[in-house]
Structure formats: C-alpha cells, structure tokens
C-alpha cells in the first residue's frame, strides 16, 4: 500500500449564482491545489444540474466568521431600533401606499 495520507489540497468555499443579477449563495466546499482547479472542481461537484452559471471560490482559511457566543452582544444593537422598520410610522388613513 502506498501512502494513503498524501495531500488532498486546500479547502475552498464555493458560492454559486443561480441567475444573473441574483446574489451568490454558499453551496459547500471542494478540495483543490489552486484556484483554477478549485473552480473546475466546484463546477463538477455543484453545478451538474444547471444550479447556476457563475461561481466564486475562495480559500476557507480566508473566511472570517462570527462565533455562536456572539449571538447576544454582537448583534444586540439591532434589537432596539424599531424605527428602522416602516411599521414604526403612522400615516394618514387616506394614504394606502408608501
């Protein structure tokens, strides 16, 4: 048996755009040794059924994520600003669309 633990390459995160104009959505990851190979692997793995016509790939190590413990404090500033929502405002009844 040869060495069964040789390198499978870096991990790259894959984002796919379903149709032009729509946002890129994360769909998974692939292993690859460079960006070009990552793109080709992403195409083979994640777009076999017309899931999209545009892809982004980037090394997973470049992603910076919030952590679950942040759930409270980090996102807290959004909680008490109901005036950011249109429902906060009262309009005269005669105005139905605004």
């Amino acid at each position: 048996m040869e060495n069964t633990k040789d390198s499978q390459g870096l991990v790259w995160e894959v984002f796919v755009q379903k149709k032009p104009g729509q946002p890129y959505v994360h769909c998974g990851n692939v292993h690859a040794h460079d960006a070009e190979m990552a793109l080709q692997n992403a195409r083979d793995v994640y777009t076999r059924r017309n899931e999209g016509n545009a892809l982004w790939v980037l090394p997973s190590s470049e992603i910076v994520a919030s952590s679950p413990e942040d759930l409270g404090s980090f996102f807290e500033p959004a909680n008490d600003k109901i005036y950011r929502h249109p429902t906060f405002y009262q309009l005269p009844e005669s105005i139905s669309h605004m």
């Binding site: 040789d6 390198s7 499978q8 390459g9 690859a32 040794h33 460079d34 190979m37």
Partner: peptide, 9 residues
C-alpha cells in the same frame, strides 16, 4: 496527479 497539481500550484 495530486503531486503534479501541488507542484504546479
């Protein structure tokens, strides 16, 4: 193939 890909990268 894996070795060549790593060397190329």
């Amino acid at each position: 193939v894996r070795e060549a890909a790593a060397a190329y990268a």
